[in-house]
C-alpha cells in the first residue's frame, strides 16, 4: 500500500517536472550575465579561466558563504559523533602489507604535489581550490588505508582550516579598506595566461584549497576514528 502511494506520488511529481522543464531548449545561449562574464572577464579580473573568475571574483562573497557551510558541516559532524569524554584505549593496529605500505608512502607526496598544482594553476587551467582540496584529502585517505599507524594531527588540520578562513576574510577586508567594497581585486592584474597574474584570485584559491583539503581530511578522520 505504502509502495503504491509512493509510486503514484512519484508519477505525479515526474509529470509536473517533465512538463515544466522540457520546454527549456537544449544548446542555445540563455543568460545575459554569462555572456557578460565571457566578454569582460579576462579584462576585468585577469584570469583566463572564466569559471574561476566567476567563483572567486564576481561571486567571491557567495564562495565565502559556501566555505562557511562546509566548516559548519564539519563541526556538526564532530559534535554528533563525539560520545562523552571517555578515553580511548590504545589499540594495536594491524599493519598493512609491505607492498601497500611502500606504495602508499611513495604515492602520498606525489598526490599532494598534484593537488597543489591543481589549486595553484586554478586561474589558468581547469581546476582550482575545490578540486585541488579534494585531491589533497584523497591523499590523506590513501594514508589511512595504506599506512595505518599514521594519523594527521587534529591540531594541524584545525590550524590550517582556521588560518584559511582568516586569510580569506582579511583579503576581503583589505579590499574594503583600499577600494571601497568587500573582496575587491586590489592587486595588479598582470598579463593574462601567466602564473603571477589575476590579482587576488590565486591567493584566494590557494587558501580555499588548503581549507577544503584540511576540512575533508578532518571529516574522514572523525568518521574513521572510533570504528577500529
Amino acid at each position: 500500500m505504502r509502495r503504491i502511494i509512493s509510486i503514484l506520488l512519484l508519477g505525479i511529481i515526474a509529470l509536473g517536472i517533465t512538463l515544466s522543464l522540457a520546454k527549456i531548449p537544449f544548446g542555445t545561449p540563455k543568460t545575459k550575465v554569462g555572456r557578460y562574464y565571457i566578454d569582460k572577464g579576462v579584462e576585468e579580473t585577469g584570469a583566463t579561466n572564466i569559471v574561476t573568475s566567476v567563483v572567486v571574483n564576481y561571486r567571491a562573497f557567495d564562495t565565502l558563504g559556501e566555505v562557511t557551510v562546509l566548516f559548519i558541516a564539519a563541526i556538526g559532524l564532530g559534535a554528533v559523533l563525539t560520545t562523552g569524554r571517555r578515553k580511548k584505549p590504545e589499540r594495536k593496529i594491524e599493519p598493512a602489507s609491505l607492498v601497500l605500505y611502500t606504495g602508499c608512502r611513495f604515492l602520498f607526496p606525489l598526490i599532494l604535489l598534484f593537488g597543489a598544482y591543481i589549486f595553484v594553476h586554478g586561474h589558468l587551467t581547469p581546476g582550482g581550490g575545490f578540486q585541488g582540496g579534494a585531491i589533497v584529502a584523497s591523499a590523506f585517505v590513501l594514508t589511512y588505508l595504506g599506512c595505518r599507524e599514521r594519523r594527521i594531527s587534529e591540531r594541524g588540520s584545525k590550524l590550517a582550516e582556521s588560518l584559511g578562513g582568516l586569510i580569506f576574510v582579511i583579503v576581503g577586508l583589505v579590499g574594503l579598506a583600499v577600494g571601497g567594497y568587500f573582496l575587491m581585486n586590489f592587486l595588479p592584474k598582470g598579463i593574462p595566461n601567466f602564473l603571477f597574474s589575476a590579482g587576488i584570485i590565486p591567493i584566494l584559491y590557494i587558501v580555499i584549497g588548503v581549507k577544503v583539503g584540511s576540512e575533508l581530511a578532518g571529516i574522514i578522520d572523525n568518521l574513521i576514528e572510533e570504528s577500529e
Binding site: 574561476t52 581547469p126 581546476g127 578540486q131 579534494a134 585531491i135 584529502a137 584523497s138 585517505v141
Partner: peptide, 13 residues
C-alpha cells in the same frame, strides 16, 4: 572544472 570536481569527490571521497 566540474568534471574534475565530480571525479575527485563524487567517485572517490
Amino acid at each position: 572544472d566540474v568534471a574534475m570536481a565530480e571525479a575527485a569527490i563524487g567517485a572517490a571521497l
